[in-house]
């Protein structure tokens, strides 16, 4: 499903005239239905790796071959339009940062990936609502704007949006931070279902016990150069 060969990510920060390596020499494989947990100290590049695979970051070296219904593509070199297609149809991603959409309701945010798929509006919203409720979102929040939600509630919306579709590859970056126990359980259940359906999962979990029993392997990332990338690279 996914074969990563010698992937590396370096940043060149012009203002500081510094080069920072987020990670290098990453080699890993992921088969359908496999759950691989990324491990490593803070700043070791776990988030950066996920972002590179999602192509939010542009890898600076190596390859990342993804098997898609349209062929085996190297994510590292893939054209922008193809990446957009992959994100819509093959690969999902969850981090802690919700897109700022102050006037779209929680249900509509979650339903959107289904609408892209071509599902009819009512069906999409029903599925979205059901998933949100599973994750423990209060019913009165379904048609409210996440902008005003607490961190935990927002995270549920975030998660639901990535879980709503059966992606072949799911990238999760600390998805349970700020979630309550009930939501964590619901997430675990959903991940289990996805695994069984053949989704490959690559994830970072702050509390590995959330996914105990689901993890097939771990992959340790070594700190290449510890630096708080957020303040230096200017990313949120």
């Amino acid at each position: 499903m996914l074969e990563v060969i010698h992937l590396e990510k370096r940043f060149w920060l012009h203002r500081l005239k510094r080069e920072v390596t987020a990670f290098s020499g990453v080699n890993l494989r992921l088969e359908p239905g496999e759950f691989v947990l990324l491990e490593g100290a803070n700043g070791a590049g776990k988030s950066s790796l996920l972002r590179c695979l999602y192509r939010t970051y542009r890898p600076t070296g190596g390859e990342a071959w993804l098997r898609t219904p349209r062929g085996r593509w190297d994510l590292a070199r893939l054209g922008d339009r193809e990446v957009l297609w992959v994100r819509q149809n093959v690969m999902g991603y969850v981090s802690q940062f919700l897109d700022p959409r102050p006037r779209t309701t929680a249900v509509d945010i979650v339903a959107e990936p289904l609408l892209w798929q071509g599902l009819d509006e009512n069906q999409a919203r029903r599925k979205a609502a059901s998933l949100l409720l599973d994750l423990g979102l209060r019913p009165e929040f379904l048609n409210a704007f996440p902008y005003g939600f607490s961190g935990g509630e927002r995270q549920k919306v975030n998660l639901a949006r990535a879980l709503i579709r059966d992606y072949r590859l799911l990238l999760l970056d600390e998805p349970t931070a700020s979630l309550d126990a009930e939501a964590r359980k619901a997430l675990r259940q959903r991940l289990e279902d996805l695994k069984r359906a053949g989704t490959a999962i690559l994830a970072v979990f702050h509390h590995p016990e959330d996914v105990e029993g689901l993890v097939d392997r771990t992959y340790p990332l070594e700190a290449a150069e510890y630096v708080d990338l957020r303040s230096e690279a200017g990313s949120p």
Binding site: R51, R55, T56, R58, D80, S235
Partner: peptide, 11 residues
Amino acid sequence: GLADQVLEDPQ
């Protein structure tokens, strides 16, 4: 490049 890419990994 992709929107999130240009905004989060500016070259």
